[in-house]
């Protein structure tokens, strides 16, 4: 499996990253080297083996339906790079 320049574009967009044109080649090379290395896994026979999806041994760790207020409105907004008295603000989203 190899990443082409086109698929790199798509993946970068999915991840909301921008690859500078001058970095593109080196990055592709390094990514493809890594992928060639992880491709090794195809050598392992995993017939009949279930994927391991959870490392925890715990089951049914549920929370009681109770309200707890731990942040004030001001605290919630205080860290935002752009906000007004009530809302977080981002550049306009065209819908």
């Amino acid at each position: 499996m190899e990443i082409t320049p086109e698929s790199l574009e798509k993946i970068a967009h999915l991840a909301r990253l921008q690859v500078a044109p001058q970095d593109r080649e080196k990055l592709l090379e390094s990514l493809n080297k890594t992928i060639a290395w992880v491709d090794k896994l195809s050598e392992v026979d995993t017939t009949g083996i279930e994927p391991l999806t959870h490392m925890t041994h715990e089951v049914n760790r549920l929370r009681k339906d109770k309200i707890e207020q731990t942040l004030t409105h001001e605290q919630a907004l205080s860290q935002a790079p752009d906000h007004d008295a009530d809302y977080f603000r981002v550049p306009k989203v065209i819908d």
Partner: peptide, 18 residues
């Protein structure tokens, strides 16, 4: 990503179990 999920991610989860 969709086309590679089974070949890489799920595969790795199986190998992890092994």
């Amino acid at each position: 990503s969709a086309s590679y999920y089974d070949a890489y991610f799920t595969k790795a989860q199986r190998v992890r179990r092994l």
